[in-house]
Design a binder for these strands. Structure first.
Lengths: 296, 296
DNA sequence: CGTGATTACGGTTGACGTAATCATA
DNA sequence: TATGATTACGTCAACCGTAATCACG
């Protein structure tokens, strides 16, 4: 299970073609074929069906493992590199959806105050991409939001030691059109009671439905409309038009036209924003200072 | 970053000696030296100081990554193997501390009822070892307990896709000697108010202190006595003798001589027991049946 | 000095490319 | 039949072992 073999395996599976993977990776078609054959021999199981190229059940299982494995490998490399890395002047910050920009503004202002010469670049990304970027060193700093039980850390994908600091918690609310019968229950909405409602499936721009099922402890929360965008405003618009409910941070939800934002009473949930730094837990300010080159 | 190199690196770091690692891995001293040199060249950083052999800061970071990486690698291998594996008659169950044996007994009875010919072996392990064993296929089934917010899944180390099923939740209680002033607060104990008390540090046999800090959202919970055993009875004895407090599942805690078990009112916590199976989520009974060979 | 890590060197194995072959849409 | 995966084979590098050397306690 050489990482190189794993890498070509995921490339082949993703592209659905040996030759395309070969070109992408700078190998010949033959080498790719040999890689896959070596993997299949090692694991004693066929991983791909050819013509058309598609993963077998065993290959699908391997794929699920391979991507996190390669990610962790990159994270390990980045983490070791950080130890001996020269500080750099450019600070790259990744911001996930549902990570409120006010918090980012405060953080950046603090950086500029303490490191007046440092440039800062901000990238808007998906939550998974922020975690990946911070782990692999592509990002110096990450800001992600999500729901969790109060004071609980966010359940982030485990790609290696990351420093996670909660920087804020806000209540969460269900957004629903004023016409919705549940608006009457102005206070004390139980999430489990909404399991049979129609929900917006907006995994990037609102709380994912799987998370709702886990939090409420019941099945349901069937998706009515899927919204692939990352902008919560789109979710608000869809909710106002009656296409389904969504769970959002209260500050984001309230004041939206045509919508009621009803806080969730049970289970107790908050929207939590966390600051991510690569490497083992340390003081965030000190860790940042170490990585930033102070102008002379 | 060949896994082989990583494997010898962790062996060298663990044993503190190139030659000892060589013997353990069936290599020659020279090969081990070359492995480490290759790793250091690849990562462009010294990883070990020699004479005495000890990890450098960069090596320490790598170590932190290497163990989970190798574990995931083994898990991937096991997961693929499971797909094409022949069912076997022997069922191995790993039981973590704080996983109540009644639940195990019920589970085993159910297995024997549905698969009358299946032998079952039970191993008592640490929680981490249960997760590892299930992931790597050494165990067919795992049972672990821990505290979490109600309906929340337990925060288990992420070693790959595991099927996790909650099989029970019970209240948690602080155990304290009858003489303790807080016994008066028979109901409605707030965990945060106990941050300054003396606690038993029993990471295997009771809720770990780090978990308490995270749940209460405050620092504190300083350890008074460390108890390395895995048997909660030892914790009860220590608590009764006044050596410190501990958080335990209520059924375990109540009725212990000389102790009061006071339920925790805030934050809302439960002791949750989860059933672990290797592989992607499926129906647990069906998954087990697939792996068990029914006697003819 | 002696234990133990490193370096030098040779044999073997394995990896990749070229090119021919095979298989399937 | 054409596209694309596989197999054959040659070359070259990588790996590991033996043995000599080096270095720290």
């Amino acid at each position: 299970m050489d990482p190189h073999l794993l890498r070509t395996f995921v490339a082949v599976a993703r592209l659905g073609s040996f030759s395309a993977a070969a070109e992408e990776l700078g190998y010949t078609q033959s080498a790719v074929s040999q890689h896959i054959a070596a993997l299949e021999a090692d694991l004693k199981a066929p991983l791909l069906r050819r013509r058309p190229v598609a993963p077998t059940p065993a290959g699908a299982r391997l794929l699920e493992h391979a991507q996190p494995l390669l990610l962790r490998l990159a994270a390990a490399r980045a983490d070791v590199a950080r130890v001996n890395a020269a500080p750099h002047a450019r600070l790259t910050v990744g911001v996930g959806p549902l990570a409120p920009l006010p918090a980012l503004a405060v953080a950046l202002a603090e950086v500029r105050r303490s490191h007046p010469g440092a440039e800062a670049a901000v990238r808007m990304l998906t939550a998974a991409a922020v975690v990946e970027g911070v782990a692999t060193g592509d990002l110096d700093l990450g800001l992600v939001g999500g729901v969790a039980a109060p004071t609980d850390p966010l359940p982030l994908p485990d790609v290696g030691p990351l420093t996670v600091h909660g920087v804020g918690e806000e209540p969460v609310a269900v957004v629903l059109p004023f016409s919705h019968p549940l608006v009457a229950a102005r206070r004390g909405l139980r999430l489990a009671d909404l399991a049979d409602a129609r929900w917006l499936d907006a995994p990037e721009a609102a709380v994912p439905l799987a998370r709702l099922r886990a939090a409420a402890g019941v099945e349901g929360f069937r998706p009515a409309v899927r919204y692939a965008g990352a902008d919560p405003a789109g979710v608000l618009a869809l909710a106002a038009a009656g296409h389904g409910l969504a769970l959002l941070p209260l500050p984001l939800a309230e004041g939206a036209p045509g919508l009621a934002a009803v806080p969730v009473a049970a289970p107790r949930l908050v929207h939590r924003v966390e600051l991510l730094l690569g490497g083992a837990p340390t003081d965030p300010a000190a860790a940042l200072a170490e990585r930033l080159e102070l102008p002379a």
